[in-house]
């Protein structure tokens, strides 16, 4: 009898997720194998059209660009976040330093995007300064290109990387660095040979927390980017709302899903011991991360 009790408790959640998560996911999987309807929607007829359509050079280019931009943004983010996390972990005033990272992070996502438009725009803050200093009389076009998108993506997701890195580095035993120095390693050697291998799980978590949302980015390239910085997220939305090619939107969504979740599982499964750290990445950490980005 007791076996059933647990199931009863979980039933509402199972049902809810089946209906509003698994079913929609199932539908887009199904749609991706169907024929496109004339006015949106689908024809009930099996077809691989949506997948062959992805071979379209336009979509391939965007896929490649999305991958490239996500990798660049993730690497940049990690490179910047690593010393930041280290600096917070070694600080005497960790609380204050975390506070300073978290304030911008808890500011509304769209407000922050808007702020960057206000900075980079033709009539924006940066051009204001340039004009005020008489460097150039005409305004410089900072917005609507890949560099701007990567800049803002890095800005948006830096805290996602800083927090897990801080959390891992804070647990690191700094006497190991002393020990390495004592045994003849230079400061740089002690970081590379001792610190980095021991905070690998933090680096992986930080990388995932950054890469996954960036890979599925929608709002940032839409508002900050131009035609040359369209990412897969934008293509999906366009196929859905403008071109109304639902099977194609579905197949691209599937690709994004498989790529990102596949990556997560791959990294998590590679070492059974690290799996715990990635997945149990406890709610305390996931929560602020997620609350900042939606």
């Amino acid at each position: 009898m007791k076996k059933q009790v647990g199931l009863y408790y979980s039933l509402p959640q199972i049902m809810w997720l089946l209906v509003f998560f698994a079913a929609p996911l199932g539908i887009i999987i199904a749609y991706s194998f169907l024929k496109k309807g004339l006015y949106g929607g689908v024809e009930p007829q099996f077809s691989l059209e949506a997948y062959t359509a992805m071979a379209n050079p336009n979509i391939l280019i965007v896929t490649w660009r999305t991958l490239k931009m996500s990798v660049i943004a993730t690497i940049l983010t990690l490179l910047i976040a690593l010393p930041c996390g280290y600096s917070i972990a070694r600080s005497q005033n960790q609380a204050m330093r975390l506070f300073l990272v978290i304030v911008p992070f808890w500011t509304n996502f769209l407000v922050r995007i808007y702020a960057w438009i206000a900075i980079l725009g033709n009539e924006g803050f940066l051009n204001d300064i340039i004009r005020a200093l008489h460097l150039r009389s005409e305004s410089v076009q900072f917005l609507y290109n890949q560099t701007a998108v990567i800049l803002v993506l890095v800005y948006m997701y830096l805290p996602y990387a800083i927090l897990p890195l801080f959390s891992t580095i804070d647990k690191f035993d700094f006497t190991l660095l002393d020990a390495a120095r004592d045994l003849g390693a230079s400061r740089f050697q002690s970081y590379v040979r001792i610190l980095l291998p021991n905070i690998k799980s933090g680096l992986v978590t930080a990388g995932l927390f950054t890469f996954v949302p960036i890979f599925g980015a929608y709002a940032v390239p839409l508002l900050i980017g131009g035609k040359d910085s369209y990412m897969l997220g934008n293509i999906i939305a366009d196929q859905l709302t403008k071109t109304r090619n639902w099977p194609l939107a579905s197949s691209i969504s599937m690709t994004v899903t498989i790529l990102t979740t596949g990556l997560v599982f791959l990294i998590a499964m590679r070492k059974p011991r690290e799996q715990k750290q990635v997945f149990d990445a406890d709610p305390g950490l996931i929560t602020p991360v997620a609350s900042g980005g939606r």
Partner: peptide
């Protein structure tokens, strides 16, 4: 060279 209290083994 030092033997640390926590041993500080890598």
């Amino acid at each position: 060279n030092t033997v640390f209290q926590s041993y500080a083994l890598f």
